[in-house]
Design a protein around this nucleic acid. Structure first.
Lengths: 105, 105
DNA sequence: TTGACATGTGACTGTTTAGTCACCTATTAT
DNA sequence: ATAATAGGTGACTAAACAGTCACATGTCAA
């Protein structure tokens, strides 16, 4: 798995949106994902290809359809690069606090 | 904290290297960080500004020096976006396994 | 106060990247 | 068979970005 590909893949808002959709529910086809976006099929296809190349999305063919699944492992590896086990608890608590405060207002 | 700024900031290898250095040891100055890189001071300064704008680096002035510190909270928020508490344990184990296998050769 | 040091700004250039289009292949249903 | 469906390729354009440079401000030591 290539570091650089993962980070570059995550740098685009459309690709992050695709990951959000797959996180919500796995196994979607290109056509289904395309229908939610203000973009041509070719644009979405390119983005999915980038995500797949980065290992953030894995696919399975089923007839003429291609099903897409989220692979969260590269995300965890990013986390582990800058947050070691000793500080994880503290940082996690801070992040939870931040989310709670933002959700509240 | 702006999502997009964080992801774009992480998309560049030089900026990730700077985060690595700060993860190793906090409180470095621009000049110190510059000396390790094959790049002019201006390039490094621009990168640090991007990291600061994303909230990944926080700074403190001390006389004519500017000290840089790593803030890992945005990284944790990325993690939490696609890895919920229920799957965290499993994904974490997979990531550890991957690291172990790669370190072994 | 003079010179060295540490950081900062705005403009410029070459490269990369997002998004589209014309055109193509493979699979399914009738 | 044939028409509709699902996915795929290579070339193109406009916008974004990395990196550099001339020039400038504020701080420290002798």
């Amino acid at each position: 798995m290539d570091d650089d590909r993962v980070f570059r893949a995550l740098a685009d808002p459309t690709r992050r949106h695709l990951l959000d959709r797959l996180h919500e529910r796995d196994g979607r086809t290109l056509t289904e994902l395309e229908s939610e976006l203000e973009m041509t099929r070719f644009g979405v296809m390119k983005h999915l290809k980038v995500l797949e190349g980065a290992g953030l999305v894995v696919t399975r063919r089923s007839g003429r359809e291609k099903l897409h699944f989220l692979n969260p492992v590269p995300i965890r590896l990013i986390h582990d690069r800058w947050i070691d086990k000793y500080t994880e608890r503290r940082v996690s608590a801070l992040a939870d606090l931040k989310t709670t405060l933002e959700d509240a207002g």
